[in-house]
């Protein structure tokens, strides 16, 4: 067997390499094209189109008219009106913004802390614990619209929730849904009830990945259950806490379903249940101003992007 001359030698292996790679890349393209294509169109193209649209005046049918920053001016004027105390119907975006910030400030911390507490208790190795996990997770698999419908009934003036409350705080019986001072809190309570179970499961997964011997070592070092939680569990849960808070922020800031059902598309009494998401919907599909809706959704996008970015920047630990 004579070796081939070197000139052939260098080119040949490359060719197979290319043939193989070409074949593999072609197969891969075949397999991912639909999934990737759909997401690029409905995700990226749509996102960039929204930015583009936010500089145009349009009614879905006629020609698009470039208006520069006019659509953003609508938002700014709305906020200025709101800040100077205009009635809520004259400053819908401001109303939605104010509500959603308050709502988020309540929902995200409470649901995160509640989820951690539930997870820690449900992570005990005791009998029947699966039943409790099922109970806590059940609201999370139930449609938010249906949850909201049921809670409207429970939140009635003479409803079940006020009945339970009088055992703790006698005499406190607001008309949650119809009172503009309580509507947003009612929605927040429903949201917390509905999502904390979902995040509990995330924390359960994280808890189960903490090695047992770390706890045993801490026990030998003399740490009781409470100190073990503070010094071991919490720091090790930190990446998951960041994840849950970020997901919670994204969900809370664009809350729509619960407000739609519990407050109605106009935001209920005094606009107390109005949100940015509802406002975008109304701009786009009721007032038929897609340009303004796009500008408002760009605003929401940056609101979410900045809050989640700042939060991650501040609290994210180095990648594991």
């Amino acid at each position: 067997m004579k070796p081939k001359p070197f000139s052939q030698l260098s080119s040949k292996p490359k060719r197979l390499l290319e043939k193989k790679k070409y074949r593999e890349a072609l197969s891969a393209l075949l397999l991912i094209s639909l999934a990737a294509g759909l997401n690029i169109v409905f995700g990226y193209f749509a996102m960039f189109f929204a930015f583009y649209l936010s500089f145009f005046k349009w009614d879905y049918i006629g020609p698009m008219e470039f208006v520069g920053l006019k659509n953003y001016e609508v938002i700014v004027k709305d906020i200025i009106r709101g800040l100077s105390g205009a009635f809520y119907t004259f400053a819908p975006f401001y109303t939605g913004l104010r509500n959603i910030l308050l709502y988020t400030a309540i929902v995200v911390p409470v649901q995160t802390i509640l989820a951690i507490i539930l997870a820690v208790f449900a992570n005990q190795k005791i009998k029947g614990v699966q039943f409790y996990k099922v109970a806590y997770f059940l609201p999370a698999v139930t449609c938010p619209v249906i949850v909201a419908l049921i809670f409207i009934w429970l939140f009635m003036k003479n409803g079940f929730i006020n009945y339970m409350i009088q055992f703790i705080a006698p005499g406190f019986a607001p008309d949650w849904i119809n009172d503009k001072n309580y509507l947003l809190y009612a929605i927040a309570l429903v949201a917390i009830w509905g999502t904390s179970g979902h995040f509990m499961v995330s924390f359960l997964a994280a808890l189960q990945s903490i090695p047992r011997d770390v706890y045993e070592a801490a026990m030998l070092d003399g740490a009781g259950p409470f100190r073990r939680f503070i010094y071991i569990t919490l720091p090790l849960l930190r990446p998951m806490i960041v994840y849950v808070v970020v997901m919670g922020l994204i969900g809370a800031l664009q809350m729509f379903d619960l407000a739609w059902v519990m407050a109605g598309s106009s935001g209920g009494p005094g606009g107390a249940g109005y949100t940015i998401a509802l406002d975008i919907y109304n701009e786009a599909f009721i007032k038929l101003r897609p340009g303004v809706a796009a500008a408002k959704s760009v605003f929401l996008f940056f609101l979410i992007f900045i809050t989640t970015y700042v939060f991650q920047k501040k609290y994210r630990v180095l990648p594991r």
């Binding site: 990737a36 997401n39 169109v41 409905f42 995700g43 990226y44 193209f45 749509a46 996102m47 189109f49 929204a50 649209l53 879905y60 970020v246 994204i250 800031l253 664009q254 729509f256 940015i276 998401a277 975008i280 919907y281 786009a284 599909f285 897609p290 809706a293 796009a294 959704s297 760009v298 929401l300 996008f301 979410i304 992007f305 989640t308």
Partner: peptide, 19 residues
């Protein structure tokens, strides 16, 4: 693609409606 998980649904709503 993964980054799309962080993109709020509302920004794509109007364009997708148009598509």
């Amino acid at each position: 693609l993964l980054a799309l998980l962080m993109v709020p649904a509302f920004i794509t709503l109007v364009p997708n409606y148009i598509i």
